[in-house]
């Protein structure tokens, strides 16, 4: 099943149409059609290797980094074609930020980590930077924990803290969309709860797309859920609907834990 209408009937920010993706000869995604709603949390679920991370990485063209990947089809961000050669990838990635599975703080101070995106954009005004650091760290719910050691190395933080620094770093450049690739899979339950809480806050300002293979997490944090299996989009609907009354038998099997 595929739908190009956002299930919530909200305005669509990212519209994926007939997306096919190949790793060399192997097809990883086939004919994906998906409309991601603005300022909502959309979750991609599915068993390992189903293509959910690959799909997520299409949204800011991180797949460009892998030489053998070939993409066909269209993804639009507010009506602009992402895959077109005219699209400025640098600009796209500023608009579509990303948080990774393994927290990846840079070997710099917490302060420099957060403003990395601004520095590379050539913004060096101290006032702007200070303001951004506080806004982003507050936005990532870590301000109180690190405000006294902003100039210490970010490598000394715990896993959960480091992941929130990475979120702060992503929101510092004011993106429209934040992609999260299994952001909690390396964290303990308490840190996970904090991030989930944070995701609730983030959706007030940003569109969030999250990949997770923790179905409870998808149920807790997302507004819409897409179930992928073997590179195909099986079902996409409101989270409530997917988890209570899925249209597709495969989806039901997966969420009830009968396979996957």
């Amino acid at each position: 099943m595929a739908s190009n209408e956002s299930p919530l009937l909200d305005s669509t920010i990212l519209n994926i149409r007939d997306l096919n993706l190949f790793y060399g000869q192997a097809q990883a995604l086939s004919s994906i059609n998906l409309a991601i709603p603005r300022k909502k949390v959309t979750a991609f679920i599915g068993p390992s290797g189903c293509g959910k991370s690959t799909l997520l990485r299409c949204l800011n063209r991180m797949n460009d980094l892998i030489d053998i990947v070939r993409v066909a089809g269209s993804i639009t961000l507010d009506g602009e074609e992402i895959n077109s050669p005219a699209m400025d990838v640098i600009n796209l990635r500023r608009r579509v930020g990303m948080v990774f599975q393994q927290s990846n703080p840079f070997p710099k101070s917490i302060y420099e980590n957060v403003i990395f995106g601004l520095r590379i954009a050539g913004i060096n005004n101290k006032g702007t930077l200070d303001e951004t650091v506080e806004r982003s760290l507050r936005g990532a719910a870590i301000w109180d924990e690190v405000k006294d050691r902003l100039h210490e190395s970010a490598l000394g933080l715990s896993g959960g803290q480091a992941q929130r620094i990475c979120i702060a770093r992503a929101i510092a450049v004011n993106p429209e969309v934040i992609l999260m690739d299994e952001p909690c899979s390396a964290l303990d339950p308490i840190a996970t709860a904090k991030i989930e809480e944070l995701i609730h806050e983030l959706k007030k300002l940003f569109t969030v797309v999250i990949v997770t293979h923790n179905m409870q997490q998808a149920a807790r944090v997302s507004d819409c859920t897409a179930f992928l299996y073997m590179g195909e989009l099986i079902e996409f609907n409101e989270t409530r609907k997917i988890f209570t009354n899925p249209d597709n038998a495969q989806t039901e099997d997966y969420i009830t834990g009968r396979f996957g």
Partner: peptide
């Protein structure tokens, strides 16, 4: 992760 993190920030 360092490369990806940096590139993902533009």
């Amino acid at each position: 992760g360092i490369r990806e993190g940096s590139l993902s920030l533009g």
